[in-house]
């Protein structure tokens, strides 16, 4: 890890946080067929002029006679057309939760959860773009003037994504304002084509009820969904040893508690993770839980592996 990922002024230092060279060998792969516009490295749902044999189908008038299987015609007296696999690009949609709770940063963390998510998201964008896949960026909450980035490929798109990530701040209360999540998810669902990869970064702590269903719905229509739960080390371990008043960052929840609550808290956290994981896996989605004290590069690899 390349040091702290949050500057003194709270700005996310995405570009300085990663060893970009280490990401070179990584490729975003998925067994699901993609439905891209351009040629790419992913197996396409469509058949076409390719090299790898993809099976036969009945001839219909209009088919290119070059692909008529004459052996089949002579042996079985049937008109069959030979098909070939094609490869296309696969759009990657990065959805980053930028509500207030993602701004939490524990004493031992290199940065806030939003900053850490931004670094991992940027890395994924770099990996995807270097593979020729277009990448789009959508925020849940965050600054009013942050618009995310449309799905596009190329160096310019990456720079725009990096700029958006670096300029983002944790704002908004998704618990109190359910529309923040609904609008973002609806936008992603509407603009993501079949076979798209959707990677959602969130702590999942302050999302409204039934959010799990709304998020899991993104995995429908052949899309590949990976939900990355990003937690701070404090949230994983509950390090408080004495009486403390805790105030949630979203929703006005203040609790007075002490170390005795650790067991119950960890149990509830495990229940939350289990609920998300079981709901997502049941719909073919992936679930990865990471904490911000870990190396973002390792987080990138975990996500890449989960997508396969």
């Amino acid at each position: 890890m390349a040091g702290r990922i949050t500057a003194e002024d709270g700005r996310v230092r995405v570009r300085e946080a990663l060893d970009w060279g280490s990401l070179g060998p990584l490729r975003l792969r998925s067994r699901a067929a993609a439905e891209g516009t351009y040629a790419g490295a992913h197996r396409s749902a469509r058949k076409g002029a390719g090299i790898e044999f993809g099976g036969h189908r009945e001839y219909v008038p209009g088919d290119d006679l070059r692909w008529l299987d004459r052996h089949s015609l002579l042996r079985h007296d049937r008109l069959l057309v030979r098909q070939f696999e094609t490869e296309t690009d696969r759009a990657v949609r990065l959805v980053v939760d930028a509500t207030k709770s993602m701004g939490y940063r524990g004493k031992r963390a290199p940065g806030s959860k939003l900053a850490w998510s931004a670094v991992v998201a940027a890395a994924l964008a770099r990996v995807a773009i270097s593979s020729g896949d277009p990448v789009g960026l959508t925020f849940i909450g965050g600054r009013h003037d942050a618009r995310g980035a449309p799905v596009a490929g190329g160096r310019e798109s990456l720079e725009r994504i990096l700029d958006e990530l670096e300029g983002q701040r944790a704002e908004g209360d998704a618990f109190a304002d359910a529309r923040l999540l609904e609008q973002s998810l609806a936008h992603v669902a509407r603009t993501s084509r079949r076979g798209s990869m959707i990677v959602l970064f969130s702590d999942l702590l302050d999302l409204p009820d039934r959010s799990v269903d709304a998020v899991a719905a993104l995995g429908a229509r052949g899309r590949v969904l990976c939900v990355v739960q990003v937690l701070d080390r404090d949230e994983v371990e509950f390090p408080f040893d004495e009486s403390v008043r805790l105030k949630s960052l979203e929703g006005d929840v203040v609790v007075e508690t002490d170390a005795e609550a650790r067991v119950h808290y960890l149990a509830r956290l495990a229940e939350l993770e289990h609920a998300w994981r079981s709901a997502l896996v049941a719909r073919g989605a992936r679930f990865v839980s990471l904490d911000t004290s870990s190396d973002p590069g390792r987080g990138v690899r975990r996500v890449v592996e989960a997508m396969r």
């Binding site: 702590d203 702590l205 302050d206 105030k247 609790v255 808290y265």
Partner: peptide, 16 residues
């Protein structure tokens, strides 16, 4: 109050 994103999951205990 100490900010803590997961405060919603923390059970309130008697202020021992």
């Amino acid at each position: 109050p100490h900010p803590f994103a997961a405060a919603r999951l923390v059970p309130a205990t008697r202020p021992k």
